[in-house]
Design a protein around this nucleic acid. Structure first.
Lengths: 208, 208
DNA sequence: CACCGTATCGCCATAATTGGGTATACGCAA
DNA sequence: TTGCGTATACCCAATTATGGCGATACGGTG
């Protein structure tokens, strides 16, 4: 597992380097104090995971993660910061970071974070996770949980994709009438009475 | 630290009980296989953390977490499930859960999750965290620039709200035919040919 | 200025799709 | 045994999708 570090604080960079080089299944493939020549470096080093300081000289961490995400989508990025700057947290997550850890995170957690993101998962320190959670819980009206059956979800999904009753019936291999019936039930559960509303509600409430 | 367990699967419930009772700083204050008399139980047991199966008999886990969150805001809830049912994940997070773990999570991680949520943090297994992350990152690829006129945007917006042609015409104070005409143009620009697709595309690409 | 393209607005007609109602049937779980 | 999910079916009215036709207005260009 190849790791690259971008961190301007010498002390902290060296401690990250130490953590990585002393770990059997990890290889430190690069360590930098700024984000200049970012793309060349990534191209040359081919890291699996990048540890990126959010306040780094050159282009800042958020722009850097965006650039990496756009040009090297297979490279996972884990952000690190001293402070829990709310807006930067969300900005970097939106920019494509897979993890977010505070710099007081103990070494074993750092390694855990690296492994999780390398495997395609995501890792947040609890306080960051809490912030993210809060962001969800702010949205009040989503509170109503709509219980759709599996079939109904399947049909709704296809409805959102823009398929007609006929096409859905064909796809699911049941009759047109069955689809009709399912959709009537879906509308009832969603409290809507048209395709448009159903699609809107499905997407907004992430029912699909 | 007082923990209450709600889990209908006997095997799994017992293994949770075992994990908790064998941990020095934790106390199992209750263990149930359904969510009946939920409020009485919580009132009596005064748990710090509740582990709640998402598919539990009685009122389901999502309704249960909502009830706990509403009536006992100091009680933290950590959800558990076998499957990563996307809609249920988000629904329970919105309902007030502080953590979300899969049932294949190893014991040490379960304990970690309990501790994190007890301390006011949040805990997600990496795959769940990834789902949450996705939710942030879903930005439109906007490869194609869609230029809608103001009128078209207005009509599209109303379409997304689920209004019929007639209702839109009424709202915008033009004739049904004009709306018809606008919608034809919108469909052309979006490369779609049904209300459902148009609504889906409008929301996904944030055209409105 | 006259010309062209684009956006806006209006209408007709037809065919297909959709929404709502009602009904039957089967298996399965509470 | 009742209820729910699933599947099927028919009917009917309303809505929607498509195509074509035409008019006005406005900004920029030759």
């Amino acid at each position: 597992m190849r790791i690259a570090v971008f961190e301007d604080n010498k002390k902290f960079r060296e401690s990250l380097e130490f953590i990585i080089v002393t770990t059997a299944d990890m290889e430190l493939c690069g360590s930098f104090e700024d984000t200049t020549r970012l793309q060349q470096r990534i191209t040359a080093l081919q890291p699996d995971v990048v540890l990126m300081d959010i306040n780094i000289p050159g282009k800042n961490g958020i722009e850097a993660v965006k650039e990496i995400h756009d040009h090297f989508p297979q490279v996972k990025v884990c952000m690190q910061t001293v402070f829990e700057e709310e807006d930067k947290v969300f900005a970097s997550l939106c920019a494509g970071a897979s993890g977010y850890i505070l710099k007081n995170t103990p070494p074993d957690k750092v390694l855990q974070a690296i492994r999780e993101v390398a495997e395609g998962g995501a890792f947040f320190t609890p306080s960051i996770a809490k912030k993210i959670l809060f962001n969800f819980q702010q949205q009040p009206e989503k509170a109503e949980y709509i219980r759709l059956t599996e079939k109904e979800k399947e049909v709704l999904k296809l409805l959102v994709d823009g398929l007609s009753y006929k096409m859905i019936a064909d796809k699911v291999n049941v009759s047109f009438h069955t689809i009709h019936s399912h959709i009537k039930n879906i509308y009832e559960k969603l409290h809507v009475n048209s395709k448009g509303e159903a699609v809107a509600k499905a997407i907004k409430n992430k029912l699909i």
